[in-house]
Computed example of a mutant assay.
Amino acid sequence: MTQADVRVVHAADREHWRSDWLESRQSFLATGNFDLAAGAHGMLMVHNDDVVDAGEGFDTHQHHSVEIVTWVLEGTLVHQDSLGHSGLIYPGLAQRMSAGSRIMHSEKNGALRRDGTPLRVVQMWLPPDNAGGQSSYQELDVATDLRDGSLVTIASGMKRDRNTTAIGIGNSHAALHVARLQPGQSVTIPDAPYGHVFVAIGDLAFEDIGDLGQGDAVRMTATGGHRVTARTATELLIWEMNRGFETQQNAAAP
């Protein structure tokens, strides 16, 4: 039986990488890391909080055998991919790419250099249940659903969520929830084998842990049910996962 554990990772303790136009704060080391599974929590391999300068971004590049969920916090992201999709991703619009055997895409700050408006975006990667296969793409606008301060499931591969409006991801062991809270509002963290709570905006009181601020994260194992209460206007990203890499590998063993 897995022992219950709660680990707080403060914003200042995240991996930090800076280029001329990108500042990346990474909950798991991603830059230059060729063994993302080794540092994963549950099924979550990459959780990058990136700030992209106006007029800059990632030119066309490829991915394969990964589920990518993108959530914009500030600004606008311009997306184009090899499946023919193009458009703007903005706060409240969730994006999912299943890379399959191969997908090419670019992502850039939609603001012109002279405007100087930065893009802040969180990008999250998980492994698919089955490597390779057909690539696919999906968007979902949940801005209206987030207005009442409830916990909203925006992306999931779990069987229980297949008939909901959540974006479907190709990992059947994970679900992403988002909440936008006003001061005094609370939500309950799902009880799961693995959980990852990220304070994207604002600050809050986390039951049994204490106060957390923007950029702080909590990695939870075999626990949940904690109440979190916003102290200021707050946005939370919460991954609920019922399996980790180790158990996935054991299940696949003959």
Results as ranks from 00 to 15, higher is better:
80 Q>H: 11
81 D>C: 03
82 S>Y: 05
83 L>I: 04
84 G>T: 15
84 G>P: 15
85 H>F: 12
88 L>K: 14
88 L>W: 06
89 I>V: 15
90 Y>F: 13
90 Y>C: 12
90 Y>W: 10
94 A>N: 00
95 Q>L: 13
95 Q>P: 11
96 R>V: 15
97 M>E: 03
98 S>C: 13
98 S>T: 15
100 G>M: 10
101 S>F: 05
103 I>L: 04
106 S>F: 00
106 S>P: 00
107 E>T: 12
108 K>Q: 14
108 K>C: 11
111 A>M: 02
112 L>I: 01
112 L>E: 13
113 R>L: 10
114 R>Q: 06
114 R>F: 01
115 D>Y: 11
115 D>R: 13
115 D>G: 13
117 T>P: 06
117 T>E: 12
118 P>K: 03
118 P>T: 03
119 L>S: 09
119 L>C: 05
119 L>Q: 07
119 L>M: 06
120 R>F: 01
121 V>F: 08
122 V>L: 08
123 Q>W: 00
124 M>G: 05
124 M>L: 14
124 M>R: 04
125 W>C: 02
126 L>I: 10
126 L>G: 04
127 P>W: 00
127 P>C: 01
130 N>E: 11
132 G>R: 12
132 G>M: 13
133 G>E: 07
133 G>R: 06
134 Q>F: 06
136 S>P: 02
136 S>N: 13
137 Y>C: 11
138 Q>K: 03
138 Q>S: 14
139 E>Q: 15
139 E>D: 14
141 D>L: 11
142 V>A: 07
143 A>E: 12
144 T>R: 12
144 T>N: 12
146 L>M: 14
148 D>E: 15
148 D>C: 14
149 G>K: 04
149 G>F: 01
150 S>T: 14
151 L>S: 11
151 L>E: 11
153 T>Q: 07
153 T>R: 12
154 I>L: 09
155 A>G: 11
155 A>I: 07
155 A>Y: 08
156 S>I: 04
157 G>C: 09
158 M>Y: 04
159 K>F: 04
159 K>Y: 01
160 R>Y: 07
161 D>W: 02
163 N>C: 05
163 N>Y: 05
164 T>V: 09
164 T>F: 05
165 T>Y: 12
166 A>I: 14
168 G>N: 14
170 G>R: 15
170 G>C: 15
172 S>M: 00
174 A>F: 09
174 A>W: 04
176 L>W: 06
176 L>D: 09
176 L>S: 08
177 H>G: 05
180 R>D: 15
180 R>I: 10
181 L>G: 02
182 Q>Y: 06
183 P>E: 03
183 P>F: 04
184 G>V: 02
184 G>L: 05
184 G>N: 09
184 G>E: 10
185 Q>E: 15
186 S>D: 10
187 V>R: 04
189 I>F: 11
190 P>Q: 10
191 D>W: 03
191 D>E: 10
197 V>S: 14
198 F>W: 08
199 V>S: 11
199 V>F: 10
200 A>P: 01
201 I>A: 03
201 I>H: 08
202 G>L: 01
202 G>M: 01
202 G>R: 02
202 G>I: 00
204 L>H: 05
205 A>V: 02
206 F>A: 09
207 E>C: 13
